[in-house]
Write a protein that binds this DNA or RNA. Sequence first.
RNA 1: GCUUCGAUAGCUCAGCCUGGUAGAGCGUUACCUUGGUAAGGUAAAGGUCGCGGGUUCGGAUCCCGCUCGAAGCUCCA
Length: 628
Amino acid sequence: MTHNSPFIVRILQLHCDSIEYTPTKKEIKSAEEDVSTDTTRLEELVVAFVAVEKDDDSSVAQDAISQIKNSMEKIGCKKLLLYPYAHLSSNLASPNLAMSLLKEMESSASELDVSHSPFGWTKSYKVQVKGHPLAESSKVITKETLSSQDEVTSEALKSESKIKSYWYIMSPDGSMTPMSEFNFSNHQKLEILSKYESAKKRSVDEPPPHVALMKKMAIADYESASDQGNMRFFPNGRLIKSLIEQYVTARVKEYGGYEVETPIMYDSHHPSMVSYFNRFPARQYNIDSEGKQLFLRFAACFGQFLMANEFQLSYKNLPYRLYELTRYSFRREQSGELVGLRRLRAFTMPDCHAFCKDLEQSIEEIKTRFDLSRSVLNDLGIEESDYEMAIRFTEDFYNENKKTVEELVKKHGKPVLVEMWKEKFFYFVLKWEFNFIDNLGKASALSTDQIDVENGNRYGIDFVDENNEKKNPIILHNSPSGAIERIIYALLEKAAFDSKQGRKPQLPLWLSPTQVRVIPLKEEFYEYCNSLVEKISTNNIRADIDDRNESIGKRIREAEKEWIRYILVIGEKEANSENLSIRDRQTGDVREISFDDFISEFKEQTKGRPFTGLNMPKNLSQRPQLMV
RNA sequence: GCUUCGAUAGCUCAGCCUGGUAGAGCGUUACCUUGGUAAGGUAAAGGUCGCGGGUUCGGAUCCCGCUCGAAGCUCCA
């Protein structure tokens, strides 16, 4: 929904048999005074739920009330209740303004039996709506047109809330059990995912463990000088994030994606955006610039579709895949929703679209990408037992493509949450996702893919088929890993879980900011240590030196706290030995190994993963301490 | 958005109930210490107690307002 349009008054109008409302409590300071908390009951009336948005003026109020009067005449109703209802808008006018506007509307309808429910109060209400076709309507009164129009922009939101879903659990053998009848006793995480929406109050009063870890490990932190949900990444965090980004990008390119870069902001009034918004009720950041109303992208879709629109495509070119690692995508999530690295307002999202010539091709393609996503997650350190799969589709799609659905579920190998829609509400007919379940029982989506049957047409993307006819491609929307920040969140939550179980928390070796720490016993070994670190580093291993004037015990303890896998203490013995004495954090033991054997053991563990050099001074004595 | 909680040294926090000279640990700096696999010692520096108002002889502490933050809820195509 675009908030740029100069909508002023939003009205949901209901023709009712009756309504009862009870003011319970003042919600805002400027609430109406002298309000009785008795229940009011009205019968045979029109209830207009009204929200006033900012930038209004009284001409709009006049227009709004005359619209209501018109339609009331049509249905032959003389009684009107104006019901202030802030929830119709996320861009409300100030309470004072809204209240005066409502009063104006009320006084302009004196020929009707008109009243209003108290403004600024929390109210409970009970409403009985009539069943005839004109009983329900919504209006948006704008300053620009000064006329009502059907509420186009909220269609998606409205249909979303009306969506009829049927919930099942599908087993790997393809059998479907209604969710309520499924025995979850061996599938606790799936149960968490399935019951997520209907879950009773969980009295979780601890913050998610990854929040403390991301600070303690000097990975990331909140930046209060920015907007909420916009993080800063310290050198450690940037290194980890960069490596994950590189890895995911390499895998997508290997699969056949072509990397592009597209703008992060778009004109809300560009023709292809307007209709997209109708189907896409996201909250986005808006920017006014030189009379243009721009919004920050919430995915790479626009950029890639607008680009694909320029391509001359033949069926021979398909499937064709465009890929972008969006740094950043922006979603203005509700402030109360933002938690650590789990849910952000600015995030890095690998987004790969595949343009396919027909449904068959898209089905082949979605299987390939399903495998890719599983493999990417696994290689990033997220195991199958860490996530649960959900798959959603329309009833029609399922009836015509049962085998495809069953095949995906079978690949997953565990029971899967199924949501089946009676009709198509979104632009896609099938969507699957992998959901990570964290220590607090929260589910968050990682990988996902969708079969989009609308946007090819909407964005005017076409190709010439075998019969020399123009067609719109079917588009798949895949993020093989989900947001990169969310991967870090998942890895930290896993580490916290290990810690809780009494195991040592750790990051995958290839992501560790320091992989080998060298500790000189005393100053006279500094030179030797330097050349040793040099020698290790030339093998693409991140090694550093703790040359601070601290005891051995303390320096080892701090290396442990930094989750550093290998520690080399260098004294007389080591300086004169061909072999290395290595303390392996996984065992806590010191063992002797030749330099070459160590290097190959190390390489074996980081095989196929990207490398980048140390992102901190090599000497710890030269590092600033991050206390966050 | 709603509810609740919070804001005191660079960081984590105590002090507040019951008003009377601003505290600890970690970190930082200096010096001592030259160590053998998870915390060596001594000392110093470091704070308009988030902002504004009120009560009081006196406010970090009590009252009111504001700002910012966090968690939970709702939400999450």
